[in-house]
Simulated assay, not measured.
Amino acid sequence: MSTPLLKVENLVKSFPIHGGIFNREVASVKAVQGVSFEINKGETLGLVGESGCGKSTLGRCLMRLHDTTSGKIIYNGKDITHIEGEELREMRRKIQIIFQDPFASLNPRMTIGAILEEPLIIHNLYATAKERLDRIHELIDLVGLRREHLNRYPHEFSGGQRQRVGIARALAVNPELIVCDEPVSALDVSIQAQVINLLMELQQKLGLTYIFIAHDLKVVEHVSTRVAVMYLGKVVEMADSEELYKNPKHPYTKALMSAIPVPDPRKKEERIILTGDVPSPINPPSGCHFHPRCPMAIDDCKTIVPSLEAKSKDHIASCIRV
């Protein structure tokens, strides 16, 4: 077996809440709770789940934009969980991120050319301005924009064009792994397909590896090699994309799948309606976090913390009922 490109071991991230006269820590938001997975070179791992389940926090932890509370992040066999300084800068050449909102993630005071040149300067990748300009032209061609766009500012572009700039910026330093943090959720539906197809073409052309975070289950099915389903900071199910969509095991995954719209209403299966709201990550339920909303829950679910176990070949889920 080859070494996985990225290995995450029992990753935990909590955000402290301060209060009182002395501004002491009174509680914490348990955003990510013991997540583990591996991803091999060239794969796309899809991360799905409701808003607030910890998908984006997990992605930012992998980028080291957030420091982890505990656990390990191992990239290409090297533990990068606590690296700093030049080591961290070198690591960020290999792992890049595409943000959800392309307008908020681009500096409004910089031209597109300056935005794309900045990572080349920071990482000392090219010796001369001419070499940097050649690389910028290569990037702008790669994402389907025109070279005369380089002297314009972000506000002069549409959302889809701005996201193409964000993709070009992520590609500038020749990364191996890109965290796609809901890269199409802020775009019109007509533009989403163009950006998704661009990402898939770039993956084939450049040999990229993706972690694809999204709400749209059909998009994730289309782009992903494997899919991990998150609920309240934990991965509750993971399998190959085709297997997960054909044969979901966890009751939460089944509820998500039942919500996917189908073109032919005659083929629509019964919708699974979950009761109640998502519990607070400040004070998650005991036992299985999903038990207050689970239609299959029994008394044991209130006390037993289920672990991810193999339910079939390459298909794991954390539920004592399946």
Rank of each mutant, 00 (worst) to 15 (best):
P154E: 06
T81G: 10
S318R: 02
A317S: 15
P248K: 12
R293H: 10
N40M: 11
I83D: 06
I304S: 03
G77C: 10
Y210F: 15
L106Y: 05
V48N: 03
L274Y: 00
T44S: 08
K7S: 15
V165A: 12
K30I: 01
S224P: 07
S286H: 11
G85C: 07
G113Y: 04
L177R: 01
P265I: 01
V236C: 09
I196C: 07
M91Y: 15
I316M: 10
G20S: 09
V220D: 01
E9D: 07
S51I: 10
D67G: 12
I273H: 08
G207V: 11
V8F: 06
Q204T: 09
E50M: 11
I213Y: 00
G85F: 05
G160D: 01
S2H: 04
V227A: 12
V262M: 08
L6R: 09
R92H: 12
L171N: 00
I74D: 02
P285A: 06
S286Y: 06
T303M: 13
I80S: 09
L125C: 11
E156A: 15
E156W: 08
M91G: 04
I112F: 14
L208K: 02
H66K: 01
I73T: 02
C294W: 07
E86A: 15
Q203L: 10
A170D: 02
Q33Y: 00
S307I: 07
Q163W: 08
K30P: 03
I112E: 08
I98H: 04
R293G: 03
I178A: 09
S56N: 06
T253D: 04
I74T: 02
S241P: 01
R132C: 08
R226T: 04
I260M: 14
C294F: 13
P281I: 10
I39E: 00
K302V: 12
L133T: 13
D277T: 08
V229M: 04
A31L: 06
H315S: 03
K234L: 01
M257Y: 05
I191S: 07
D67Y: 03
I298G: 03
F290V: 13
G54T: 02
D188Y: 07
I196L: 15
S312L: 05
P108Q: 11
